[in-house]
Amino acid sequence: MDRRGYLGALAGASSIALAGCTTLADVGERLSGGEEYEVGMSRNAFDPAEYEASVGDRVVWKNTSGADHTITALEGSLPEGADYFATGGFDGEDAAREAWRDSRGGRLEPRGTYGHTFEVPGTYDYICIPHVGAGMVGTVVVVE
């Protein structure tokens, strides 16, 4: 085998061997850009769908898919005294839904991140507005 053929075969074998290592990072893993995140996003799901945090923790979502997404809290699920959260910085669920409907407002583009600090214990349900019909819902459970 000539040198060029050998190097080509070696590169191909290396790519196959490393294929599992080059997939999307696991929850909390440091990415090449140095960003850490707790919740990733596939085409139609948050990963993990349920995440547990402690009071005062900042949870970071990363759009690990090729589609635009939103993170939109369901107002009816927020614990009493909790701050509303949504990509785009909206004050409420209706405003977030209207902005998405009108101009795709609040979208989190591929590889984008969004973070929110949870100060009140309880269960927080949230959705991705454009993909909620496909079941893209998530929950953050905040404990003392």
Rank of each mutant, 00 (worst) to 15 (best):
W100E: 01
A134Q: 07
A19M: 08
L74E: 13
N44Y: 07
S65P: 02
G34F: 14
R58C: 10
M136S: 04
H116W: 06
G34N: 11
L31S: 11
A49R: 15
G34C: 11
D57E: 06
F90Y: 08
V143Q: 05
E144C: 11
R107C: 07
Y51G: 02
L7R: 12
H69M: 02
A95S: 09
S42Q: 05
A13L: 12
P110R: 09
E36S: 13
V142S: 04
A53E: 11
P79Y: 08
G106D: 04
L108R: 03
P110L: 09
G66L: 14
L74S: 04
W100S: 00
Y126M: 01
R97Q: 14
P110T: 05
P79G: 10
G8K: 09
R104Y: 07
G34S: 06
S15D: 15
A86E: 06
L78A: 10
G106Y: 11
L74R: 06
D57N: 07
R43D: 08
G12A: 13
S32Y: 09
G115L: 07
T139I: 02
D102W: 09
F90W: 12
E93I: 00
I127D: 05
G5L: 11
D125Q: 08
G28M: 14
V137Q: 09
V143I: 06
P110I: 03
G66Y: 13
I71S: 03
G92P: 02
E119R: 06
G56N: 09
D68K: 12
A134C: 05
V60C: 10
G20R: 06
P48D: 05
E109W: 14
V55A: 06
L18N: 14
E50G: 07
G105E: 04
Y37M: 03
K62R: 13
L31M: 12
